[in-house]
Amino acid sequence: MKYHEIKDLLRQCHGFATLCEEDLDLMAKCGVNAVFREGQLLAQEGHPADLFYLIRNGKVAIETHVPHRGTVTLQSLGTGEVVGWSWLFPPYLWMFDVRALEDTRVISLDGKCLREKCEANHSLGFRLMKTFMGTLVARVHDARLQVLDVYHSPQGG
């Protein structure tokens, strides 16, 4: 896949809406196309988080293993969503497993390379940090709403 096609895909991603052309250029240069078959792992808990993904098509599950309970899915992410922020924050390790729930096409982005560019250029670092913080905040809100278990009570709507 050509670099400008990757850039177009990044530009269409709602999460990257605030990034300028220059930033998209830089990110696109760190991107390659990848495909994961249903059941395949995109990331493994505890492993170095040197990559992150933009889902072009498909669905993945954020999972963890709980003793005596087995694998627990915490959230699913689908087309147009960004997977992974651990590449940007120490200790740069994946916090959860990420598994393809169906055949999934992604843009795989080199987070390690981008991280180094952010260290060298703090203005870029701030813009990327802001962008990924937005995703992170949205995920925290999601998790809180899930914890509230809003449909459970008799007042459940």
Binding site: K59, G70, T71, T73, Q75, S76, D142, L145, Q146, D149
Partner: peptide
Amino acid sequence: DSGADDWSGNLGPVTH
């Protein structure tokens, strides 16, 4: 909001 192992649909709040 929560699903068993065999659930391959969306998982997360409706806001997501």
